[in-house]
């Protein structure tokens, strides 16, 4: 993806976000003008800044989009985006990054809280390092255990805080 194509892709998302925020800002104003808040002036409504920011975001991201369309129109850009997405699935770097993020995500969303902290962390560390082929199996396990031990020592004994 070249930088213009990146700008285009992200401006698509930003325009959508800008529209949503502006509408939501106005909805906040309408809701706040009723009981129990009864704030009937827009200037002091909690919807004021969200509406302004939403509109600003919309304007700025439209500027960004027009700039990114200098060579190539809207439809061509969309087509390029789809081709890129198809190719990305086979890109080894992207696969590595996504795979790593999935392991991190499972750890952050599921493992913590499900099983004791040191166990979840050890499982996470070892599996991510193995996935990345960072080192040999033996060394990886050792590094994981030593790290967890050090972390628990530092935080629980040293700083006296309780971990998740």
């Amino acid at each position: 993806m070249d930088s213009k194509q990146k700008d285009f892709t992200i401006s698509l998302v930003l325009v959508a976000l800008g529209i949503y925020t502006t509408i939501e800002g106005i909805r906040i104003y309408i809701k706040a003008s009723k009981a129990p808040y009864n704030i009937d002036s827009f200037a002091i409504s909690p919807g004021l800044l969200p509406t302004i920011l939403g509109a600003l975001l919309l304007i700025l991201s439209l500027v960004l989009m027009t700039k990114s369309l200098k060579n190539g129109n809207f439809l061509i850009r969309i087509k390029q985006l789809l081709t890129w997405a198809r190719e990305a699935v086979f890109d080894s770097d992207i696969r590595m990054m996504v795979g790593g993020m999935v392991i991190m995500g499972i750890y952050a969303f599921l493992l913590i809280g499900l099983i004791p902290y040191y166990l979840s962390s050890a499982v996470y560390l070892a599996s991510l390092m193995l996935f990345l082929r960072a080192s040999s199996f033996l060394k990886t396990i050792l590094v994981a255990i030593i790290t967890i031990a050090l972390v628990i020592l530092l935080f629980q004994t040293g700083f006296n805080v309780s971990l998740p």
Partner: peptide
Amino acid sequence: KKKLLMPIIFLLCVIGSYLINYNRFDVK
């Protein structure tokens, strides 16, 4: 080696996020 270091850094990131309010929501 970055591949050995970064998983550990993420571990610290999780702790840092959690400790601010002792809330697992912050990790998410």
